[in-house]
């Protein structure tokens, strides 16, 4: 827990991702940030950020090595917020297919992460997103672009809404076809783009997430 009155966020350090930038951007956005691979600290934090860069299978191997999936499962079971970024989002889905190899993901959501169908890949640069009105992450940042760099994405969302729960908020973007740019589903949120590299718009998105941590 934070000692400074700011929400405490752990950036999960498991050997993947640009954790340095993510940590600094979260600090800028108002969080009390700890970068660690320690499971107890990751469990206890107000929010857990799961970064991820590189191949889906490599990220899964690295996450598994520190039993990261277990931490994420236990947090979500207790309603404790988790934010996945880039491949840290992709591994939340059931499967990832890269270079023809199918790797099992954490399976928090059904669906497959597949190659983008655009002529120019990686999808690299600043793109617009189509966020639902109810989105908390995109509250007040409707007409901004965010920085993407990826060759794979989840391109379908099929969870039937549970009438007892707030429906998942799914944000879409387009690069040679529609793909999922962000998801807010109960305590689990994720972005395919890099908020920590998306300038002021990205910082504002992180502020929205941080503000939601203690509701």
């Amino acid at each position: 827990m934070s000692t400074k009155g700011r929400p405490g966020v752990v950036v999960l350090d498991y050997g993947s991702g640009n954790i340095h930038s993510a940590a600094k951007a979260l600090e800028r956005a108002g969080a009390d940030v700890t970068v660690t691979g320690d499971r107890q600290k990751a469990m206890d934090a107000d929010g857990l950020l799961v970064p991820g860069v590189g191949a889906f299978s490599a990220v899964m191997d690295q996450l598994t090595a520190v039993r990261g999936g277990e931490v994420i499962d236990r947090r979500l079971a207790g309603g404790r917020p988790v934010l996945g970024i880039c491949v840290g989002m992709q591994v939340m889905f059931a499967d990832g297919i890269e270079r023809g190899v199918d790797t099992e993901g954490l399976g928090e959501w059904p669906g497959v992460v597949e190659p983008l169908k655009a002529e120019v890949v990686p999808h690299m640069g600043w793109n617009t997103v189509d966020a639902p009105e109810e989105s908390v992450l995109f509250d007040g940042i409707r007409d901004e672009r965010f920085y993407f760099v990826h060759s794979y994405a989840a391109q379908d969302w099929h969870i039937d809404p549970d009438p007892k729960r707030r429906p998942a908020q799914v944000t879409w973007a387009d690069h040679g076809g529609r793909f999922i740019a962000a998801v807010e589903n109960g305590p689990l949120s994720a972005t395919q783009f890099h908020p920590e590299k998306s300038g002021d718009a990205g910082i504002r998105l992180l502020q929205n997430w941080i503000a939601s941590l203690r509701r």
């Binding site: 640009n18 930038s21 951007a25 890099h194 920590e196 590299k197 998306s198 300038g199 990205g202 910082i203």
Partner: peptide
């Protein structure tokens, strides 16, 4: 690079 990445949030 480290000092820049700490303060400038673009790639």
């Amino acid at each position: 690079v480290q000092k820049t990445a700490e303060q400038v949030f673009i790639p």
